[in-house]
Simulated assay, not measured.
Amino acid sequence: MASGFQRDKITGVFTAMDHDHDGALTEADFDALTDRWREVRGAPVGSPDHHRLATIMLGWWHTLRAAAGTDRVTVHDVLGVVDQLPSALDAVTETANAMFDAVDEDHDGRITPAEHQRLVDAWNGRPTPLGDVFRSLDTNGDGTLSRDEFTALWTEFWAGDDPTAPGTLLFGPVRQSNAKRGV
Rank of each mutant, 00 (worst) to 15 (best):
V78T: 12
L79K: 02
G80E: 01
V82I: 10
V82Y: 09
D83R: 12
D83E: 14
D83V: 11
L85N: 00
L85F: 09
L89V: 07
L89H: 00
D90H: 09
D90I: 03
A91W: 08
V92R: 00
V92F: 00
T93A: 15
T93K: 12
T93Y: 07
E94F: 09
E94S: 13
E94C: 07
T95Y: 13
T95P: 08
A96M: 01
A98T: 07
M99P: 01
M99D: 10
M99T: 12
F100E: 00
F100R: 02
D101L: 10
D101E: 15
A102E: 01
V103E: 02
V103M: 14
H107Q: 14
H107F: 04
H107A: 15
H107V: 12
H107M: 11
D108P: 04
R110S: 13
R110W: 13
T112H: 07
T112K: 07
T112C: 09
P113L: 13
P113V: 11
P113S: 07
P113F: 08
A114L: 10
A114E: 12
E115G: 11
E115K: 05
E115A: 12
H116C: 10
Q117H: 12
R118F: 04
R118S: 13
R118A: 13
L119Y: 15
V120H: 04
V120D: 03
V120G: 03
D121E: 09
D121P: 05
W123Y: 12
W123D: 10
W123M: 15
G125P: 04
G125H: 04
R126P: 02
R126G: 05
R126Y: 07
R126H: 14
P127K: 15
P127N: 11
T128E: 09
T128G: 06
P129S: 01
P129V: 02
P129W: 00
L130E: 06
G131I: 02
V133P: 02
V133H: 12
V133N: 08
F134T: 05
R135L: 11
S136F: 03
S136G: 04
D138V: 01
T139R: 12
G141Q: 08
D142V: 09
D142Q: 01
G143M: 10
G143A: 08
G143K: 08
T144H: 13
S146M: 06
S146K: 05
S146N: 04
R147I: 03
D148Y: 05
D148M: 06
D148G: 08
D148V: 10
E149C: 00
F150I: 01
F150T: 01
T151R: 10
T151Q: 02
T151N: 01
A152F: 03
L153S: 00
L153C: 00
L153N: 00
W154T: 12
W154S: 09
T155A: 06
E156W: 10
E156N: 02
F157Y: 15
F157E: 13
F157S: 07
